[in-house]
Amino acid sequence: MAAQPATLVQVRIQTEDFDLSAEVAALHAADARVGAVAVFVGTVRQLDEGQALDCLELEHYPGMTERAIEDMVEQARQRFEIFGARVLHRVGRLGLGEQIVLVAVTAAHRGQAFQACEFLMDYLKTQAPFWKKEHGATGSRWVDARTSDDAALAKWGIAASNAA
């Protein structure tokens, strides 16, 4: 048997930025079963409507956030044949273009890795306690939840009523 990493699942909430290649390398290092790594990175973008964005501020519920995401990863492990997962989410003030979230998943083949990665992001968007506030030249506003995110989670057979 090839050596396997001690911690296959890691969930972190942090203010500082993350190094994508280092995180991905650490996730599949020493796990010879891994043949696929699916990675999603969410970044701060200019919104379609409204004022120019100076920065985005992210608030969360310390304690619950980590617990909620760990539960999501456990559900992903039950649904898909994945070996490891790493979910990082930043909080605090983030500028345009900065990285917000990383979801990386390992599996033997791409199908399960892609699906688990999408499942985790769909889940996180509607069930993890984070809130975004936009700060611009003319003021600040909280970002509204989108019903399309509830619909994305419903595809997996999970009824969510976050936005609605």
Binding site: L58, H60, I100, V101, A128, F130, W131
Partner: peptide, 10 residues
């Protein structure tokens, strides 16, 4: 118990 608006992370 916590009360909050719909979540908007990710």
């Amino acid at each position: 118990v916590a009360f909050f608006p719909p979540v908007t992370g990710g």
